[in-house]
């Protein structure tokens, strides 16, 4: 257990070095589908945060009782329950949003991010670390899909959070809010992140680690 990352490390790792969407390429389905505007992207992030946090905490609590060959069933059961709760909750309090997101809320169940975090982190580490990991990963997920959503919404409709930001003369790039825009934006974003990583890797390692350590102190 000594070489397991601490809570702070887990938290930081989720945001960029191990960003679930951009680095591990997990959870691409919502990253492409619900990013036509910022509001749905943020609602999705909220739902993922809730499900991932609850699933991670519960898995971590029962980690010593888990039988290895039954663990996937337990994970699936836990995730599906919390997804149902999130879905019902949205339907009750944010009805229009739940209609817009449609099947993509239940599809969180098969979102690889969550089952991967349960497997990699929560089934091995304490509740506190698992919780921090869930929050870090969700923030990373949220940042990635918000970046895509911001580009798509601004270029596609000239709005940001439904507030006009571009001059009225802007010809809306309708294709950005349609499916092809999602693929193009995401492809370019992956390229950008990879380019940034290669540039950063050429600098001394000390510089890269410093921000993480200063925040941990």
């Amino acid at each position: 257990m000594a070489d397991q990352p601490t809570a702070t490390e887990r938290f930081i790792q989720g945001i960029l070095p191990e960003n679930p969407v951009l680095r591990q390429l997990l959870g691409l389905c919502p990253a492409l589908a619900v990013t036509a505007n910022m509001k749905s992207a943020l609602t999705m992030t909220g739902a993922v945060l809730f499900v991932l946090f609850c699933a991670n905490v519960i898995t971590s609590l029962i980690r010593n009782l888990l039988k290895p060959h039954l663990r996937i069933v337990v994970f699936t059961l836990t995730i599906a329950t919390f997804v149902t709760i999130a879905d019902r909750f949205l339907a009750a309090y944010l009805y229009q949003m739940s209609k817009t997101l449609g099947p993509y809320i239940p599809l969180i169940i098969v979102n690889c991010i969550i089952i991967c975090r349960c497997e990699v982190c929560a089934s091995k580490q304490s509740v506190f670390v698992a919780g921090a990991d869930a929050i870090g990963q969700s923030i990373g997920f949220g940042l990635a899909i918000s970046a895509i959503a911001a580009v798509r919404e601004i270029l596609g409709t000239g709005n940001f959070f439904d507030i006009p930001v571009l001059p009225a003369a802007w010809p809306d790039w309708v294709v950005m809010v349609l499916p092809p825009g999602a693929f193009l934006t995401f492809g370019l974003l992956i390229g950008l992140v990879n380019w940034y990583e290669t540039v950063r890797a050429q600098r001394p390692v000390r510089e890269v680690l410093e921000p993480a350590q200063s925040e941990g102190a």
Partner: peptide, 23 residues
């Protein structure tokens, strides 16, 4: 293909063009 786009990046951009065609 430019180095950063190899793999997932170029796949996504090609899928974007395919999605455009399927529209």
């Amino acid at each position: 293909v430019p180095e950063p786009f190899k793999g997932a990046g170029i796949t996504m951009i090609v899928s974007g063009i395919m999605a455009l065609a399927f529209m």
